[in-house]
Design a protein around this nucleic acid. Structure first.
Lengths: 263, 263
DNA sequence: CGTCGAGTTGAACGACTTCAACGAAAGTGG
DNA sequence: CCACTTTCGTTGAAGTCGTTCAACTCGACG
């Protein structure tokens, strides 16, 4: 975990957005939102906070914002002002190389936070795109920071959220660095399954919000390989796949595919 | 940037260390350290802090710790207590799969912070190993947290450091997900070069502290491929390589190798 | 009805891996 | 101090997994 600026490893194509827009979150001020009464409060930001702290979150009176399928919530290079919490829908976040290559760095569902990467230098490093019609809470970071000053509890929660993000990316690095196609896809599906479960949906049957190409980009492989791997799993009777509809038939087997050679 | 626990994507082999040791940093209390007089203060934690804040850091009176080459500073699964700042020497941090596969997730040099991934759940996710004799500052996290309570400046610096870590990992994901062998090695060398420069060393001639296998693991390729790529660059007159001694002959060319097809 | 994007599948290719052999350097122990 | 082993790096040859290119199906949408 070194902390130097990532000047060289990748120069994000923040020049891709010719003039990085500093637009405020359009329509964010529309509805006031209460964390205390939100059905996502155990998954989202308030998770782990005591009642008085949650009340202070409510006091912020941050707004919501609707995002249509395919629309971008923010782009790499945009000024960082808000931490976004997904209320409904699914997002992808992605990084761009100046030559146009895209790398999907994550998928986000209800209760998950987006945009923490923007803190580093005040500008978003990634672009967040809605994969379906979605809604987010837009929490002004400065307010969050004020709130954390004086509350070591709030502060710890924020720090923990960022740390989780780091750990999450570790997992992805592991995956990209030392797993083959089947392991990657298995890991992806198991992860999705668990997140569905945590949200009260069926862990064994769900609808993919992302295309084969997006899955491929996330997993560091081509869409054809993703497709083939799905087919292979189907033939091994681990999955049933119909386009974006997934049914996990043999979770045990899938987990074995995920970590095959345990010596 | 979703924030769910990484339960599935990768199960870190924290059981590898049969009984995750909760040992304190051995000998950490030996010497008191002053950030204000440290020659690394512009690279390290105090960077961006005002004088009064740095004075408060000094007030913490945290200790140092010497680590011999090959020794581990902490292991995945160890209790998270300290944030470590590298004073001298080089570290790698790595993740383990339960089947023994290792993925190097970063290299750390003087002034860089390690261990921020431990915050997520109170245990280190990665293992930090010294690649040469080294020394670190071990800063108790609880003290750091106390210090940040009441100082929004300190708080912001901490948050920014974590965010940088996230952005850094983004770069690595990009690299692992969508670059070929030559691009990876070029990116790695350019990054190293810049970090050497920031520390007052020659950016064009330096000594690698890590083996081919460690570079390979970091870049998601085999040691033989690393070796071959070095040789290829040498033949293209971009580098001169003698074991671990590197001389960058043509930085421009190397950068072109890093991002070849700019349309 | 025709077009377009998304997904599947086959065949050929190629980049990286695997296996293997070798030399140099560094540590080990008499 | 010198044989010994071990580790590290390089290089070649063969093999493999994923990519690339291409053809085709299906459903959505004007």
């Amino acid at each position: 975990m070194n902390v130097q600026a990532p000047t060289a490893l990748v120069r994000l194509a923040r020049d891709a957005a010719a003039a990085p827009s500093d637009r405020p979150a359009a329509g964010a001020a529309a509805l006031k939102t209460q964390c205390s009464s939100c059905h996502l409060r155990d998954l989202c930001l308030p998770c782990g906070l005591g009642l008085p702290e949650v009340a202070r979150l409510d006091g912020l009176g941050f707004g919501r914002r609707k995002v249509k399928a395919g629309e971008e919530l923010y782009r790499g290079g945009d000024r960082f002002q808000y931490v976004h919490a997904v209320r409904s829908g699914t997002f992808k976040s992605s990084l761009m190389l100046s030559d146009g290559r895209e790398q999907v760095s994550g998928f986000h569902m209800a209760g998950e936070l987006m945009g923490l990467d923007g803190l580093a230098n005040g500008r978003h490093a990634s672009t967040a795109t809605a994969l379906e019609d979605a809604e987010v809470c837009a929490i002004p970071y400065v307010h969050l920071n004020e709130l954390a000053t004086g509350s070591s509890e709030m502060q710890l929660v924020m720090a923990r959220l960022m740390s989780r993000e780091i750990v999450r990316e570790h997992s992805l690095m592991m995956l990209l660095g030392s797993m083959n196609a089947e392991e990657r896809v298995a890991a992806f599906l198991i992860n999705l399954s668990q997140r569905m479960k945590a949200r009260g949906y069926s862990p064994s049957e769900f609808h993919l919000r992302m295309s084969r190409a997006e899955i491929g980009s996330y997993l560091g492989m081509k869409l054809e390989t993703v497709s083939r791997t799905f087919s292979a799993f189907q033939q091994q009777r681990l999955l049933e796949v119909d386009k974006r509809h997934i049914r996990i038939v043999d979770l045990e087997g899938l987990m074995r595919a995920f970590q095959p050679q345990v010596h």
